[in-house]
Every structure is written in C-alpha cells, then in structure tokens.
Design a protein around this nucleic acid. Sequence first.
DNA 1: TAGTCGTGGCC
DNA 2: TGGCCAAGACT
Length: 343
Amino acid sequence: MTFNSLILIWFDKNKRNLPWRQHKDPYKIWLSEIILQQTRVAQGTAYYLRFADTFPTVRDLAKADETEVLKLWQGLGYYSRARNLHFTAKHIVNELNGIFPENFKDLMKLKGVGEYTAAAIASIAFDEALPAIDGNAFRLYARYFNIHVDISSPQAKKYFFELGKQVIDPNRPGDFNQAVMEMGATICVPVNPKCGICPVNNSCEAIAQKTVELLPIKSKKVKVKQRNFHFLDITAGEKFLIKKRIENDVWKNLYNFPLFETDSIDQQLEELNLNLSLIKEHEEKHILTHQRLQIVFWKANVDEAELKNLAEKLDSEIISQKELEKYPLPRPMEKYFSKKYKV
DNA sequence: TAGTCGTGGCC
DNA sequence: TGGCCAAGACT
C-alpha cells in the first residue's frame, strides 16, 4: 500500500476527538490553527474552547477590543498571534464583507497566516490539495524518506513542500495533512519515536538506514539573552500602579508593574530622583525561548497622594485588584497576583 | 535572512 | 538541571 493510504487508514482508526474537528467552519479552523502554532494540543485546547465560546463568529471577534482578546489569550504566549488574529478578524469583516478567503493564495494575504496555516485551512475547510508543512511534517518526511536537508535552512521549506505535493492524497487533503501531523505528534515524536507501532515502519527509509535518531537535521541554535527586570509593586491601600507595554519587546500590549531593567535598582531610583523604600517581595527566573529573565518584585507602600504623583512620573495607571480581570498580564505578573491575593 | 516572539512538558 | 521542542510568522 502507498504512504498516504497507510497513514489515512491509521488516522481513521486512531485520530483524537478534538473539538475543531467537529465542523468545517473556516473561521473555527483558522482559530484552531492560530492557537496551535508552536503550541501543543494539550495546552491549546482549553483556549480554543474559550475563544470559540466567547467569539462564535468572526464578527464577534472583530467587535471585541484588542485588550479583551489578549486577556483571553493570557498565558498562551506568542501574543502577536492574538494581536494578528484580532487584526485579521476586523479585516475580514470590514474589507472582505465578512467572507472568509476560500483558497491558499487569498488565505496567504491574511496577517498571521503563513504557508503552513494557509495550506492547513485550505485543505481542511476547502479541500485544496496542498501540503501543510509544520514541525511534525518536517520530522515525519525527513525520516520516512531519509532526507538529510537541514530543516532550518531556507530551502528546506520549499523542498518539503514539493515533496508533500507528491504524496498528499488529492481526495482527502485535509485528513491527509492532519494525519501527517497526528503521526508526528504521537508516533514519530522527536525523542524515542514509537517505530514499533508505526503504520509505515515497513517502508520507512530511516528505519532501514538506521538514521531515525539523527533526523530531522536542524542546525540553527537559539542565542539566549540575559536580562534583569525589577517590577515595582507600589501600593496605596487597595490601589497600585500598572503600565501597558507598548514597545516592540516581549509581552507587547500586555500590562505589568512599572519596570526598571537594570543591574542596580538603587542607582536607577537615584537617577530618577525617586525616594522609595523598597522591600524585596519575591524573586524568580523566567525562561523564554530567547531570553532568561531574572525578575525581582519590589514592594513600596505609599499614601494616595504619592501614588498619584508616581503614576504621573512613571506614566502608569492606578487600578485595584478587581480591575485586574480586564488587564492581560504576562505569566510572572499573573503568578505574582495569584499569590498576593490568595486566601 | 537571521533574530525575535511565550509557556510548559519531557527526559 | 538544562536543553529541546511544540499544528510558525513577522520583520
């Protein structure tokens, strides 16, 4: 039997019952694909259910404020996905008359939709026979065909896309793409792949050549930058300061305490002529893909007049605990508050 | 095109 | 523990 018929048979028998597989609504397919970018099904599913429930149609999403969308996205990471999701929803409603693009070429024009996502939506929602090449597809194809092309090289995408076009099942392109991904996510996993129960182990070239553990080849390594964050929890009674992150940096358009990024918080306060007595409340390191953040939470109790004064100086807002439900927060801030207000 | 963007799970 | 990686896209 051929590669595609074997994995489709396997998929029909073993596919997981995931909520976005219950319909062909392109909006919901798009929503699920954006949420699942660089995200495991186990982590993304709850977010998908919340979004689908809160915004059942693209018009509902377009009507929302970006802050509301980011709040619902809080904790999922890669927040540009949420910003682009919202931008694109408005674009579809306002410029495309609320009609979702129905082919790969037009889907590619949407912000936040690249080759993978366009192919996934086109194949799943509109039966267009184009391969969706994600990390799973790279790995499964690299092993099955014993391909030693560096998947972090620019040519790799094109190479695997062309390969995928040759093996995709034109009658069931959406199921084929999902079968490839599901195989990669559950059988052909990066470490200790389950070759013993793999439906294509008889014809897998990497098994034959004993190269399974070597593939796929990926040369690019990430450089990790070290940063020191000092968050200031400046409170007067129930109120404290919070500030929107508008710069192009991590957590853009989310909110955090007034922040000083410095080796010496004392020196920083002196330079700004701020006379604050700070108590170290909490310290932790927070790991991001390209950054290692050393975070210190400082607390300062002030009176209401001083809080107002500092809000102006630090370009911040004054809010209270109850209002936090509207403010999207980076994970460390979320954890800090959940500890602070714990019963 | 190389760097950047989160969080969590696994070994 | 630390490194790797996940249904990638943007600049």
